[in-house]
């Protein structure tokens, strides 16, 4: 058994209702456990669509998603071993930090002692001790994203999808959170796919980065190599000349 996420010929047609156009997409990629694979590429290239397909928010017309050789694409979003973080609106604003995290374990919020303890441990791991009664509005942007990561932790799912989760944060906070994330993914042997518009984030977070363009993965390389690669036209267009 190969311990990895493997996506092959995962197909989807994106319909742009405003322009009345259809964009066919097909993705192939692999990511290993303990790895954060960054996804970069121009707007509208299909990065978020790929995450939505893996999470089950969009239904693929063809292809496979294998986690450790087991197919997962037939499952509903709640049954997939996937947690997803967005750029914003990851938390319910009227619920406190503890409840926002606890929802990840049991939506009915009837937690056992062990489960309550798990929430407490996640708070400690993410440096959020003492914040459990606070509402999201009382937290900074970085703290809010930490709470969302804590929820992903307590869910204990193997795949973590990150859709520009740090885009709204300042450079210091981004660096700090990326370090937290790297440590967690590595320690828990998770597989993380991170969409980012900042090449520096990819460089900091990922050994490997995939370039997505026109509804497909056009290249997967060592991050530093990919960011220095101006021979490919689509990468040159996206990153600009050195």
């Amino acid at each position: 058994m190969v311990e990895m996420l493997s996506i092959s010929q995962l197909s989807f047609s994106y319909t742009d209702t405003e322009n009345n156009s259809v964009m066919p997409m097909s993705f192939d990629l692999q990511a290993e456990r303990g790895e954060i694979l960054s996804l970069i590429g121009p707007s509208g290239s299909g990065k978020t669509s790929l995450l939505n397909l893996i999470a089950g928010f969009n239904q693929a017309s063809d292809g496979k998603i294998l986690l450790d050789d087991k197919e997962i694409q037939q499952f509903a979003p709640a049954q997939r071993p996937v947690s997803m973080l967005f750029q914003s609106h990851n938390l319910f604003p009227h619920l406190d930090v503890f409840t926002n995290i606890a929802l990840g374990i049991r939506p009915s919020l009837k937690l056992s002692n062990e489960e309550q303890q798990a929430v407490g441990e996640a708070l400690v791991t993410l440096g959020l001790e003492g914040f459990n009664k606070r509402k999201p509005g009382q937290l900074s942007g970085g703290q809010q994203q930490r709470v969302a990561i804590a929820r992903a932790l307590v869910r204990q799912h193997e795949i973590l999808l990150l859709d520009e989760p740090f885009a709204a944060l300042g450079p210091a906070m981004r660096t700090e959170l990326i370090e937290v994330l790297k440590e967690l993914v590595s320690r828990r042997k998770m597989i993380a796919l991170m969409v980012s518009h900042q090449p520096t984030d990819a460089l900091l977070a990922s050994k490997r980065t995939a370039f997505i363009d026109n509804g497909g993965v056009t290249s997967i390389q060592e991050t530093a190599d990919l960011l220095n690669n101006r021979q490919r036209k689509e990468i040159l267009n996206y990153l600009g000349p050195k």
């Binding site: 999470a55 089950g56 928010f57 509903a76 979003p77 709640a78 049954q79 997939r80 996937v82 947690s83 997803m84 967005f86 914003s88 609106h89 990851n90 319910f92 604003p93 009227h94 619920l95 929802l103 990840g104 939506p107 009915s108």
Partner: peptide
């Protein structure tokens, strides 16, 4: 209601009542 919340609801497996309680009623 932000579309991310509907996605979260799907991912967390919230049923119709829980969706009402956590997303719609607030």
């Amino acid at each position: 209601i932000p579309k991310q919340h509907w996605k979260l609801a799907q991912q967390l497996g919230l049923n119709s009542w829980q969706q009402w309680k956590y997303l719609e009623w607030p």
